[in-house]
């Protein structure tokens, strides 16, 4: 038995409707093939980095389970049949310990937030066109800042 980590990407609409049922079904698939679920975490609906099968929003379910290496192929095949699971990824966890910190970073490239996080006052003037242009400029400034802060570390 080895420890695996599985991340499901679930359709946003389905997750909003019935996350409990979805979770149960997915974990049942793992258990059907002899997997023993050790831990699970839900990550609520969010915007995806790109549209997957036409879905711009999705929710994630992260689970840690013990299974025989041979069962992984069957589990993957089973999960691929599911209609509301957009993506799945099963990864071996080295060391056999469920990590304490389970994070799923939010992809946030919005400049207003990054400036707020750094505690700067930056007013973005409103108005069509101009606003967009300013946003883009800030984006680039944000990138440079990240690099600069790296040097300071």
């Amino acid at each position: 038995m080895k420890l695996y980590e599985v991340l499901f990407l679930i359709e946003g609409a389905r997750a909003a409707q019935d996350f409990d049922g979805t979770e149960k079904e997915l974990l049942a698939v793992l258990e059907k093939h002899g997997g023993k679920v050790r831990d699970k975490v839900r990550f609520e609906e969010r915007k995806l980095a790109y549209a997957v099968r036409g879905h711009r929003r999705g929710a994630y379910l992260l689970a840690y389970f013990d299974a025989e290496p041979g069962a992984i192929r069957e589990i993957t095949a089973d999960l691929n049949l599911s209609e509301y699971v957009l993506r799945t990824m099963i990864v071996r966890v080295e060391g056999g310990q469920v990590p304490e910190k389970k994070i799923l970073g939010v992809l946030d490239t919005r400049p207003d937030r990054s400036f707020a996080a750094e505690g700067r006052d930056m007013e973005i003037p409103h108005g069509e066109g101009f606003h967009d242009l300013r946003m883009r400029e800030h984006d680039e400034i944000g990138d440079i800042d990240i690099e600069a802060s790296k040097d300071e570390e």
């Binding site: 970073g105 680039e140 990240i146 040097d151 570390e153």
Partner: peptide, 29 residues
């Protein structure tokens, strides 16, 4: 300390693919 890689400094064993905030720092816009 500064000459070493940022993950070595933090003694990171494995880089987590779910940690996009860290990964974003390693990628362009």
């Amino acid at each position: 300390d500064r000459a070493r890689c940022r993950f070595c400094r933090e003694k990171v064993e494995d880089i987590d693919y779910k940690d996009t905030q860290t990964l974003q720092k390693l990628a362009t816009g």
